[in-house]
Design a protein around this nucleic acid. Structure first.
Lengths: 180, 180
DNA sequence: TCGAACGTTTACGTTAACGGCAAGGTTCTG
DNA sequence: CAGAACCTTGCCGTTAACGTAAACGTTCGA
């Protein structure tokens, strides 16, 4: 009920998968993946005799990273493009790295990539710092609200309303006033 | 060269500021702020005799939070709307809180807000966890690249190229292969 | 070999989040 | 009270990131 004609995905040797399979695994749509290719974020490793896009594990990893940068980090595709190396470069390096025997050239390629990865880490760390700041602010508001709650509960114990939450379940909110 | 007619912003008493002033401080545009109001994310506290929007410190805080949720956390305005209480509710609570003397009612308002703030914190923490995961992945790639670099430098020391980086500045990249 | 199931290109449509006017009202200062 | 400098409400335009549909090619099992 999921595969009748075409198949070959459970092939334990060929690490090349078609677009829909990859899309499903990553929680993307085929359209989105093609779009990413269109804007130069990635290019499939192969093209099954000039037609179908075929992705190898490396491609899938790159796609997963792209999705993370978009969903989790909230970057735009343009920003992502600046953060990653453009696909043309990646393809060239991939080839150069496999064909050359020159250790110096390999070193250059790796060195270049390392620099980029370190930049990515810095960018992500920066984002996380700002996010942590927001969390602290929110926690500040929460604590402030809890104090208010405690003050209210301490001042006087009103009629024992039926649904008295167990323990301390105070609350605070968008109004940072003590009220005049 | 920045204020000739109108002014009143350096007024140390009135905590009510006009849109452009607020926009400048937050790094937003007046248009964006009006748009946020249009989609129900906030409403100015006052309206100077039925015209100009006037924002109090509380409004500005809410705006700053909105901007953070958008820029730092990468949420859409729709998601932000679900995370914050809608403005109608906020206005009503704000009023109810100031007018009532009933401790029970105040408690209810604060409690409600607390729950929401705690939800916000959870959401932000969740996002940060995913971001941290991405950072770890990137660090993994970086370390992997460094290992490759070390291997290369160890195997043989090629011609002493001119620009030998000080210490260890290896690099890794988008190709996780050791090359056949 | 043939057809169901998938893939490809091309092109137009859609939604979110504003940008940028135009036409007119408000405010403070001189 | 004039007028510069801001503000207001429309309303149309734009960009990013896909969605969707049409017309056609590719694969592979029966």
């Amino acid at each position: 009920m999921s595969q009748s004609a075409q198949s070959t995905p459970p092939d334990l040797e060929a690490p090349l998968r078609k677009i829909q399979e990859v899309a499903a695994e990553l929680g993307l749509t085929a359209r989105a993946i093609r779009y990413y290719e269109e804007v130069g974020l990635l290019a499939p490793a192969a093209r099954s005799g000039g037609a179908y896009r075929l992705y190898d594990p490396d491609d899938v990893e790159r796609l997963r990273f792209i999705k993370g940068l978009r969903d989790d980090a909230g970057f735009s595709l343009t920003e992502i493009g600046q953060l990653l190396e453009d696909e043309a470069m990646r393809a060239r390096n991939r080839d150069r790295f496999r064909t050359t025997d020159d250790a110096t050239e390999r070193r250059a390629i790796i060195d270049d990539t390392l620099v980029r990865v370190e930049r990515q880490i810095d960018t992500l760390r920066d984002k996380m710092t700002r996010l942590a700041g927001m969390i602290e602010e929110a926690e500040g508001r929460r604590d402030h609200l809890r104090v208010h709650l405690a003050e209210l509960d301490a001042g006087r114990e009103p009629e024992p309303h039926v649904h008295t939450r167990s323990g301390s379940r105070p609350l605070a909110g968008s109004s940072g006033r003590t009220a005049p």
